[in-house]
Design a protein around this nucleic acid. Sequence first.
DNA 1: TGACAAATACGAAGGACTTCGTATAGAATC
DNA 2: GATTCTATACGAAGTCCTTCGTATTTGTCA
Lengths: 135, 135
Amino acid sequence: MAKRTPARPTDAELEILRVLWQEGPSSVRQVQEVLGRSREVGYTTVLKLLQIMTEKGFVLRDESQRTHIYRARHRQDKLQRQLVMDLLSRAFGGSAEKLVVQALSAKKLSREELAEIQSVLDELSGDRQEPDDES
Amino acid sequence: MAKRTPARPTDAELEILRVLWQEGPSSVRQVQEVLGRSREVGYTTVLKLLQIMTEKGFVLRDESQRTHIYRARHRQDKLQRQLVMDLLSRAFGGSAEKLVVQALSAKKLSREELAEIQSVLDELSGDRQEPDDES
DNA sequence: TGACAAATACGAAGGACTTCGTATAGAATC
DNA sequence: GATTCTATACGAAGTCCTTCGTATTTGTCA
């Protein structure tokens, strides 16, 4: 039996991933400092989490320097997609439509955001008749 | 200190909630049988989970009969909304737009589903000028 | 080179989740 | 009423998550 990869990061892991996406490749110290702005967190706690995340494959570690540098292994949108798919199957019976509707009503969206969604929607509808046209 | 309510059901709990939403109020035996279709699960496992979920407030228990009957405490769409909000803040920095776009591209949607989303979108856009008009 | 600073490695505690075994109580049957 | 079936209650094991303390290693600098 091989190592089982949980696919889904835990809450604490996701918190760290968000720092790495935002700040780019960082040392343990840097991550700890950013996290420290919002809550108390010990240095070795962050270190341990990053070590585990390395094992799980969520982050990559550059050990060429004494101070190791960590970076997210996957792009933010890729993991976001995965989390959406996960929620989709766990809570929405696979109905993306229901999820979209819930998300739309979950938060008040700006005119710009609505327009952006509209354009994606148009693209999806358009794909049914004509191929991708970007002229 | 009051009991802390986790707000978010665990995976196993969510699985049971889905059964209750689908089947309506059910006994432990009934829940176990439905779950048993997709995977092995012991009777007392389901029982224990339902007991815990009762404590946490995710389900309500009717003890008037010898065989207790459980039902979901909250409507499915209400909990779905909560889970969406949770994912929103944990993984999307609160950007509902990003989440919607991801969900839209996560799965191929039928023409009907796209139309449904469009109508919700129209409503949201419309709300900016005129009030809800349904005549 | 010896002492101090900073970083990593390791292990373990405490809690939550999931699972199930065993004990106990109530209902039904002969 | 004794046996048997079915249901709930309880406890405990094993795993994962989060946290941190301690040990070890490495680099710096006087």
